[in-house]
Amino acid sequence: MIAIKNVSKWYGEFKVLAGCTTQIEKGEVVVVCGPSGSGKSTLIKCVNGLEPFQEGEILVDGISVGGRKTDLPKLRSRVGMVFQHFELFPHMKVLENLTLAQVKVLGRTPEAAIEKGLRLLERVDLSAHKDKFPGNLSGGQQQRVAIARALCMDPIAMLFDEPTSALDPEMINEVLDVMVELAQEGMTMMVVTHEMGFARKVAHRVIFMDSGRIVEDAPKEEFFGTPRSERAQLFLSKILQH
């Protein structure tokens, strides 16, 4: 479903990504972790072309993300993305946040878009908030709306970039629950997170990044058993203490 082949990226002289290679199959859930600044966000943003990269190739459903002839907006509309800071559109009500792209990008009728939006709001248990502005919701609620907004597009895969790290601790679980459910339904997911409980529960594989490199890419059991690299061991022992 997602194939990342030898991708390298530079910011000027600085090499953010160094020959990253991995693959995510249909229905697979892959957790990406690693220290801050290791290039996790950059890598996940390369997958839907939000960041350009200079070397290598990324294929999503067989389509090359960096390809000259690729219709990027169309490709992106098929891949959902959830951000650390939610990024709901603050000038639109919750329901409008959910319908905008359905109408403008997928060409659905407003009625169909509203129906779909309401269904997904129901799913994340926020129907009562459809006419509020995002600013009036809690962080956890906003992130659930953001997930619903992405799901409205019927994505073939979902990308999450630290979806719970901007949340107050008591709100983390309400978001993780939605993600776990999604994973169990067979959604293809690439999730940057340090929530190892989530990884243990639903991940198939765990990728560990350091300094722009994929240092470890192992099935979950193996990763939590004995990570091969010292860096990963150190990192794991640090975050598992919390």
């Binding site: 939000l50 993305m81 800071h85 709901l88 559109f89 403008k104 990008v105």
Partner: peptide, 30 residues
Amino acid sequence: VPRGQVHAAFALGLTYGQAMRRVILPQAFR
């Protein structure tokens, strides 16, 4: 307007023009 807003708009498949008109400019003008 925070860069994340542009990313969110693009990630939904909006084109540059749509992202500007619907997401960025309304917030900027406000």
